[in-house]
Design a binder for these strands. Structure first.
Lengths: 257, 257
DNA sequence: TAGTGGTCTAGACCACGTC
DNA sequence: ACGTGGTCTAGACCACTAA
């Protein structure tokens, strides 16, 4: 009857060994990449898709969840499911290779950095912290958890640990808006060298809530130890960045082999 | 009756506004971190957990899926669900800041690098490729997709694009085991500078299959353009690394502010 | 108010591992 | 053969959004 099938029609092969929900996901993905489903356009309701494809709603949801997790689809409770529109704005890029702080990175993109202190402790270090900062278990550290924002939008959760004996007295207000690096610089403890690890992991419930992403969303996790002149470790920092909003950039120079 | 509740007993509050599956996930996560559930130990079967917690199996599965995605749990079809044991071996670390290839990185960890060619094309560049390599749409490129392994285990999928006019004749055997950088070096095209972007994203169906991870698993994605002496772009490469097996390391040097 | 996605249930059958 | 996780169904109710 209809010469042109609707753009969300998916060929399903019940004889295939590929699970139905994967076939649906794959089909929709192709439709999106081919342009049949335009960016920003709404998908049919889950119940509608299910009845047309002759599968249960649960199966449809399983397929949509896969694509939503990749960022291909955006689901809006009470409103509908949409093909994710392209982001017009560039994501903030951190330029690696130089020692720069979150605040400087965001500012260099013309946006306004912010910080909300989520935790402030003056405690004995964990074994991990003691090792990274070359401390004795009896020493004390400041442990600070902050939500880092750009133009008000949550971008990262940063956990910083500073040796109390080295940095001196510190209170929550000191770290509430300024960059930690600037604060250290004021006290003559400007870091001059750092080693940083980067990896990818899935958001747990705590991080997903803080960053406003779905549980399981891909995050870029970093771990860093910074040293001041003389080789004294001055900061141990772990940070989790939203994978869909942050981009690390670095320039590499070769020395032959 | 039983003075010590089983280690997987979870307190559920039906009045809470937190969904039941999240309460289950949160409870299990605490039990794991507290050590009540030992690394490597098996969880009760899903049906058993469901009946004891008085929830449906689907709800239990939703909770387990969350934790499995974070890597906290490992599910084995036909066998059971286990608390993920810690990995004894270090993950391969790529040292950034220097221009080094995948092969060199893996070898520097004492492991054996490998490559399986998944695709080899001699075609006109995509707009993206043409832009990155400063080519005209009429030029041709070699496009190579390889599965990169370390001691036989899949670690990354690498998509490399090389300008055909610059690198000269190339066939599939040329890229089947050696490092691309070594090959370029042999032809006098050793890259001396590169810009690399890093971000985190969730695995789609294709990548999850190739890398042997679950769909939606966190991957570390990189994009790189390399230049040879004289500023001629010689390679445009995109790679997706398993987030749970790969770790980028870099050393940073500050120049004050 | 009507329609959407979010959560949850109580089943069923299949595919895989182990014994 | 049996128990496991993997997939799928046909419903239900809730929470949110928009008209």
């Amino acid at each position: 009857m209809s010469p042109t099938p609707p753009p969300w029609a998916i060929p399903l092969d019940s004889a295939s060994d590929l699970p139905v929900y994967m076939q649906v996901a794959q089909g929709l993905e192709q439709r999106i990449h081919s342009g049949d489903l335009r960016r920003g356009s709404a998908l049919p309701a889950e119940r509608e898709l299910a009845s047309h494809l002759r599968v249960s709603r649960v199966t449809v949801r399983q397929a949509l969840a896969l694509l939503a997790q990749q960022g291909l689809l955006t689901r809006k409770h009470g409103s509908g499911t949409f093909v994710t529109p392209p982001r017009p704005e560039e994501r903030p890029s951190r330029t690696l290779g130089l020692l720069s702080s979150f605040s400087e990175d965001v500012r260099s993109r013309g946006q306004t950095p912010g910080a909300r202190v989520l935790g402030f402790e003056h405690v004995r270090p964990s074994p991990q912290e003691a090792m990274s900062l070359a401390l004795s278990p009896g020493d004390k550290v400041y442990r600070i958890r902050r939500l880092r924002t750009s133009d008000g939008e949550a971008l990262a959760v940063e956990d910083s640990t500073l040796p109390a004996a080295l940095v001196g007295e510190l209170c929550e207000e000191d770290v509430s808006d300024a960059s930690l690096y600037a604060l250290l610089g004021n006290r003559g403890l400007q870091p001059v060298r750092a080693i940083r690890h980067l990896r990818a992991l899935s958001a747990d419930l705590t991080l997903s809530e803080l960053l406003g992403v779905a549980p399981g969303a891909a995050l870029l996790a970093t771990e860093r130890v910074s040293w001041t002149v003389g080789g004294r470790p001055v900061e141990y920092a772990r940070a989790h960045y939203r994978g869909d909003r942050y981009d690390f950039v670095m320039e590499l120079h070769g020395d032959g082999e």
